[in-house]
Design a protein around this nucleic acid. Structure first.
Length: 566
RNA sequence: CGGGGUGUAGCUUAGCUUGGUAGAGCGCCUGGUUUGGGACCAGGAGGUCGCAGGUUCGAAUCCUGUCACCCCGACCA
């Protein structure tokens, strides 16, 4: 056994995979495993593998996804989406088809977020897809911000022309804008609903699709049509509206951290990155594996701007007519893209158990026809046992893969889809009472044998451990690529690729002092394509609270987060 | 909208310079052997070569136009 382990260790070394194992073997009595399929046994809950350790060197063994992250990150991203059957580009430019596996993730996100919205007193409603142009024109900054990406409906009928083609006919008296966001149309309703301070607050959320005619679409990250939720609230006082804005950002941060297993910086946007029409935009920013930043959620304090535009006013406690204070906040299917870029590896998707459409897949191994019924029966029985468990307030989702395919093929499909736990059950396990369990956050060949009752007993613990490990990895990655920077030169070096012709993955988050000027921000953007992602609430750089702007030497109250972004 | 590039089977592509009636790998279908790490053997289906026009006896190949997509810029959840 010892000899065998050493041999295996050597193979791992030679495969040029830089992996770090706990090789003390936890005394699993094992090798019930056939000689043709050796496997080492690890303690499943103690092993933590950091993302960089999972990176094979370019010459390493074949991975399920080509190219690898290091070779071509954007292409890798698209290939993961395809391999995991999350979505596909449609014939409609800029639009995507979200496939069942991808939509299942979205449904889980919806369910959990919705629960959090309800818990903070919000209710769902639905407002029209079409916004009359005149409504849209009411808030100047808002129009300016969205005008360039609006889809506009101008006709109400099709007719057959002389060439037999369908052509739009019957122009509308007033064009309709397909909502890029709903502040104005919802504001029109709110204006009717609000008369007295007793009608406040209004706390409403809507789940909807929106359309923004983007120049350069990318599946999930920037599509012409996307799905989201938009919360719209109205308040009596500024303080209450500001508190709501912050509260919902906190909900987002909690959701992304606890359910998507992604750490974020939360803070405020600089003026140039602010939502059109907002007084203040709060955001959470995540780092993904090419070290870029991605905005994972935003919450806006709209002041009285939209109340003024839509005429939302009320009679106050002392009988005065006053403008209300409004907020809006949103999260979109872009989060699925964020999830992919944050967690997936060179073998495909890796799903945090809390949003996985299926948490556990059981793969029956049926080498001989005569053993098949018994194996299937055992698999079904195990699945039934697991389904009695509750996970995150819902029954555990367990699938038995009965397809008549080779065990390897099935296994790899589930690896690419990112199912958290894979369970193999074959004829030999019928006698031993064991199953082979693999975690998606560990190297694909790692297995542990567990007696079936123990798997049922420990399933939730294993899923929690995966959830935690994904977060730990992501945090470790972010910390490894976040740098406190105190000089302009270091800043420029940090964000300048070694090879300008074929930029490698470089940079990350820079925590640096800034004098608050828009001009400086503009300059940095022009030079390096780097922007301020957020002005954090707490100083994450910590060494000194205040300091000097590294570009101008002027005083700076705090460090801000700089990065290239999606 | 500016600059560059590419269009051949579901995917990746060969052929194009030097015109002669379309080939491969993967995937798919059927049968058999397989199935505990991405299987193998045999057979099979699938393409008006992006589209339109032109040159020619003959066009994937040459010419003109057009459309779509990709990459780089301006914009963005």
């Amino acid at each position: 056994m010892i000899e065998y382990c050493n041999e295996l260790e050597a193979k791992i070394e030679n495969s040029s995979l830089r992996r770090s194992y706990d090789t003390t073997a936890q005394g699993q009595e094992s090798c019930t495993f056939g000689p043709q399929m050796p496997a080492r046994h690890f303690n499943l809950t103690s092993l933590v593998v950091a993302p960089f350790m999972l990176d094979p060197t370019p010459q390493a063994t074949k991975t399920a996804i080509a190219p690898r992250r290091k070779e071509d990150f954007p292409e890798w991203y698209q290939q993961v989406i395809r391999a995991a059957e999350l979505a596909e580009p449609s014939d409609v430019r800029g639009c995507m088809v979200i496939r069942p596996w991808g939509y299942g993730i979205w449904e889980n996100m919806q369910r959990q977020l919705d629960r959090m919205f309800k818990a903070t007193g919000h209710r769902n409603a639905y407002f029209p897809l079409f916004i009359p142009l005149s409504y849209f024109e009411k808030e100047a900054a808002h129009v300016e911000g969205f005008a360039k990406e609006c889809a506009v409906v101008t006709h109400s009928r099709l007719e057959v022309n002389a060439e037999g083609r369908m052509v739009p006919a019957s122009p509308l008296t007033e064009p309709l804008v397909v909502r890029p966001t709903s502040e104005t149309i919802i504001g029109a309703s709110y204006a009717k609903w609000v008369q007295s301070y007793r009608d406040l607050p209004i706390l409403i959320n809507q789940w909807a699709n929106v359309v923004r005619w983007e120049m350069r679409p990318r599946v999930f990250l920037r599509t012409t049509e996307f799905l989201w939720q938009e919360g719209h609230t109205v308040h009596e006082t500024e303080a209450e509206a500001r508190a709501e804005t912050k509260q919902m950002l906190d909900v987002y941060e909690t959701f992304v951290r606890d359910h998507l297993a992604i750490p974020v910086f939360s803070g405020e946007k600089s003026e140039s990155e602010r939502f059109p029409g907002a007084v203040q935009t709060l955001c959470i920013e995540a780092m993904v594996q090419d070290r870029k930043a991605i905005q994972a959620g935003t919450s806006h304090f709209l002041g009285q701007n939209f109340a003024r535009a839509s005429g939302i006013q009320f009679q106050s406690r002392d009988g005065q007519q006053e403008l209300a204070w409004t907020t809006s906040w949103g999260m979109s299917t872009r989060l699925i893209g964020t999830l992919i870029m944050a967690h997936a590896d060179d073998d495909g998707m890796i799903l945090p158990p809390r949003v996985a459409p299926t948490q556990i897949v059981i793969v029956p191994i049926t080498p001989k026809e005569e053993t098949r019924p018994a194996v299937f029966a055992a698999a079904d029985e195990l699945a039934a046992g697991l389904r009695t468990l509750s996970y995150q307030g819902a029954p555990l989702e367990v699938e038995v893969d009965r397809r008549d395919l080779g065990g390897g093929v099935k296994n790899w499909e589930w690896i690419k889809k990112g199912v958290p736990l894979r369970v193999e059950l074959g004829p030999r396990d019928l006698e031993s009472g064991n199953v082979a369990v693999s975690r998606r956050d560990q190297p694909v060949k790692t297995k542990q044998f567990l007696p079936r009752p123990e798997l049922i007993e420990r399933a939730v613990e294993l899923l929690d451990s995966i959830q935690q490990n994904l977060f730990d990895r992501a945090l470790q990655f972010r910390e490894a690529n976040t740098r406190v920077i105190d000089s302009r030169e270091e800043f420029y070096n940090f964000f300048t690729p070694q090879d300008a012709g074929k930029p490698e993955i470089h940079g990350g988050f820079a925590l640096a002092h800034w004098n608050g000027s828009r001009a400086v921000e503009e300059q940095i953007k022009n030079d390096l394509k780097v922007t301020i992602r957020c002005i954090p609430f707490d100083d994450p750089g910590n060494p000194v609270a205040s300091g000097a702007c590294i570009f101008t030497g002027e005083p700076s109250p705090r460090r801000v987060v700089w990065a290239k972004s999606y």
